[in-house]
């Protein structure tokens, strides 16, 4: 990062009295109002991905967000042209937490317009230096923890019992939408204003302080809890491999491999095992989720294919009722040969 002599964090937003200029001193001092900074915030929050593209990613959106700032700070055509070009370059970060960069950059632009010694390199290095780390931190916070946790709540309420139709509560979707939007807008506004108030140095201090680490750890505890609950509620491995065991006198006792052996030893083993297997393949073996998806669909289809055509419906697929949903209200007696009548 380029060496900078100026700390843009100090004395922002305060008024006309202090003369930080000391060189250029052309004309009266320009300072941004809270409203200018907020206008830029809303432009960014609305339009950060309006022109998302492979060449610049959020580059043009950064320029649009800076429009009210540039209009206020720079008056000569040369300055305006330079500022627009400065903010049209490649830029990409997480849009909510990453707004802290914009806040800091606005503070730097304000100082520069008042004659401080901040050149293009200084501003570019703050943008390109912070956008990567904040993309990582921001994605962990917004897409990695807050969104999945709130989605889990919403899905759990909206879906009801996954095997029963019509018992869900559509309010789950409303609750998710309201909480998610409120939290994200508040978060984005907080980070944007922190960036402007603290400036470049303050932002780096804040990122190093460990507050975000504590937040992510706590969110990790909550996230793991609800993911565990979600696994139980929605992952179903129907390994109902039944044996009919003769109990003498023409009676047949049903033996269910899953119910009578696996679940008797370790309850809930199969759904847990499947999720951990998927996690291991994706996170550790770097398997593409799409291949995994294809494999699971093939397994489901093969498991459902009727091989044993002489069996009753639901019992004719591979290995008796291998991978079949349980039949009957009590979930028992899948494919025990029907008693002779």
């Amino acid at each position: 990062m380029t060496e900078m002599t100026q700390d843009p964090g100090s004395g922002m937003g305060t008024g006309m009295g202090t003369d930080t200029g000391g060189g250029m001193g052309e004309g009266p001092k320009v300072s941004l109002t809270r409203g200018d900074v907020q206008r830029a915030f809303w432009l960014w929050t609305f339009f950060s991905h309006a022109n998302y593209n492979y060449e610049r990613l959020q580059g043009t959106a950064f320029a649009q967000a800076m429009a009210p700032i540039i209009r206020k700070l720079y008056k000569t055509p040369e300055d305006i042209k330079a500022a627009l070009k400065r903010h049209l370059v490649f830029f990409n970060t997480e849009p909510n937490v990453g707004g802290i960069i914009h806040g800091a950059v606005i503070a730097m632009e304000e100082q520069r317009a008042n004659g401080a010694d901040i050149d293009d390199d200084a501003i570019n290095s703050v943008k390109s230096g912070l956008m990567g780390p904040l993309a990582g931190i921001g994605d962990s916070i917004s897409q990695g923890t807050i969104t999945p946790i709130l989605l889990t709540l919403g899905i759990g309420i909206a879906a009801g019992d996954a095997t029963i139709s019509g018992d869900g509560n559509p309010l789950g979707a409303v609750i998710y939408f309201v909480l998610e939007v409120a939290i994200m807008v508040a978060l984005a506004y907080f980070f944007w204003m922190q960036g402007y108030d603290r400036g470049r140095v303050g932002v780096i201090e804040m990122l190093r302080s460990g507050t975000l680490d504590r937040f992510l750890t706590g969110a990790g505890v909550l996230g793991n809890m609800v993911m565990g609950a979600l696994t139980f509620q929605f992952v179903h491995v129907y390994l109902t491999w039944h044996f009919g065991i003769s109990a003498g006198g023409g009676n047949v006792t049903d033996f269910d491999l899953n119910r009578d052996l696996l679940n008797a030893m370790v309850p809930g083993l199969l759904p847990l095992g499947l999720v951990l297997l998927c996690w291991w393949l994706i996170a550790r073996r770097r398997m593409s989720p799409l291949w995994l998806l294809a494999i699971l669909v093939v397994v489901a289809m093969v498991g459902a294919y009727p091989i044993f055509t002489d069996q009753p419906f639901g019992c004719e697929s591979i290995l008796n009722a291998f991978f079949q949903p349980a039949y009957g209200a009590d979930g028992a007696l899948g494919c025990v040969p029907a008693p002779a009548t």
Partner: peptide, 28 residues
């Protein structure tokens, strides 16, 4: 019944690590 495991596993890339791993099993 099987596919939600992929969605959950994709999220676990982010949160299933370090000292908070046991909470997944508590939740389950």
């Amino acid at each position: 019944g099987l596919l939600p495991a992929i969605g959950i596993a994709l999220n676990m890339r982010f949160i299933f690590r370090g000292t908070v791993i046991p909470y997944f099993f508590i939740g389950y």
